[in-house]
Nucleic acid binder design. Sequence first.
DNA 1: AAGGGGGTATTCAAATGTGAATAGCTCGTT
DNA 2: AACGAGCTATTCACATTTGAATACCCCCTT
Lengths: 298, 298
Amino acid sequence: MFAWDDIAVFLALYRERTTGRAATALGCSQPTVVRRIAALEQALGLILFDRTPTGLVPTDAAHRLLARAERVERAACEFTAEVDQLTGSGLDILKLTFIDHFERLLLPVLREFRTRWPGVQTQLLASDRIYDLARGEADIGIRGRLRPAGDEVVVRQLPPNGWTIYASSSSKPDEHPHSPAEVADYRLALIEGAPSKLPVYQWLERLAANGPTPIRCTNYGALRSAIASGAAVSALPCSAGDGDPDVVPCFPPIEEFDVEIFLVARRAILRRPPARDLFDTIENYFRTNPALLTGERG
Amino acid sequence: MFAWDDIAVFLALYRERTTGRAATALGCSQPTVVRRIAALEQALGLILFDRTPTGLVPTDAAHRLLARAERVERAACEFTAEVDQLTGSGLDILKLTFIDHFERLLLPVLREFRTRWPGVQTQLLASDRIYDLARGEADIGIRGRLRPAGDEVVVRQLPPNGWTIYASSSSKPDEHPHSPAEVADYRLALIEGAPSKLPVYQWLERLAANGPTPIRCTNYGALRSAIASGAAVSALPCSAGDGDPDVVPCFPPIEEFDVEIFLVARRAILRRPPARDLFDTIENYFRTNPALLTGERG
DNA sequence: AAGGGGGTATTCAAATGTGAATAGCTCGTT
DNA sequence: AACGAGCTATTCACATTTGAATACCCCCTT
């Protein structure tokens, strides 16, 4: 059996990509990170990172495990959130809830926020459940598709989340499509579950019906792996794909597949300066860097 | 920040009720359990257990935290399940998925199973997601309400899960109802989310509309606390309430609120003797102790 | 009243995990 | 070719955590 704590090491390493940065993120020393990740790999019987002179790069196994690891982290965050409700010490804690991969997109913002307000703790809650901001289950969040309603919440529309087709960054120019019309000629990866209802994946489903047998994935992590490995091409949100060194966009985002995104906060919480600051910072961050969401357009 | 590992200590202690048994369950020594739980309480700023000469009894806070802690545990189990899929070493692992509190109900069975088949590992997967047995995401499970279908799975109907109204075990006879007709006269606790669709809670919703303002809970743990504390009465499945020292049934289960329960296994997995054994043992366990599910009926 | 069995908490030597310093590696630059 | 920046891995003295033994406490039985 492995130590659950080591999952935190895995996540920090996955996000920071070097043992040194992961160590500061975890609040321990660099040798400790080396040992703990080695111990985890040993316990799991699995290589999670390839060691390179520029840092650690996650193996395929690591990509497939990411979603599960994040679930553990979120469950732990919810545990502490509940603790804080019980102790009533929630006064200086901000509960955040973002759609899936946005957590990573906002890492620099959150890091800077934590240094600016060292006394304020931030907690990331699970996003697969719909946290009801009006009831105080979360303070600030980013929601997709449906505009949140109600007097209790303040809503700001962000630049739309663009989507396009991605291929492995190691693929040659002729191994991936260069326009939507060419997509049908390549092996596709499809996603199952809730995301499969997005227009872009429904489009891919229709294309796949007449093309080579598609690869079916149960979550974004697996989908990403399928693309990164070069086994297939598929759609990803630009907010996830554009920052990912292992995949490249095949062409600019397809506007009709844009998904609306909203920054939401409890009205009450915004009276507290740190919350107001974070809210404004996030809004500003995406307004000044819209390409993070929309992708690079012509 | 606390150590995620200590959540495992909390869970073991919650289930075993003594530091000694928790220690053997965790595979560490009794002093370690004492220190780790003390450290956790210190870190959280919360008393989780009252120390008595007969063992540790969970405080109200512990009851409210149980569900969150179990989520962490399940997420961790899913993590290892994924690891085992990746390493292909899943040969001697049985993946189980039960509806919520059944995990605790089956503890004695699982413990005995583990001693009878020491080489076989058991993993409990999250039950809030529907694990598809046919696809091999889980091997053996207990499902409610809908009879699972398909050629890939073997299904056995278990005795129905009975439901009745429970009150605090410290309440006096005149502080709780003695028949369904009297229920409307007491303060009720109601549950939100998926369980609220069960007939028994819909009945309570209707009763509450004309009675004192009800207490609303978001999960079974909170509901149980509300009842145990004496703040309200409400419905619980007999499989959960009858084994709970802090609550007492007010009258025999109401038959019309019975919920059908099915034991399910992948057909393929039953060819392996340990799986077959566990399957038969669980079925037999509930057939010889139907009251565990149905409750004590006049 | 004495004794025994169940529990929690404490002690102390031994095992384990930790961090500062550093070795050793691969790059791009001079 | 030498250098320095940036990284992973190792070393070793030190701090922390662990477990066997045991103290201690409560309660039931004799």
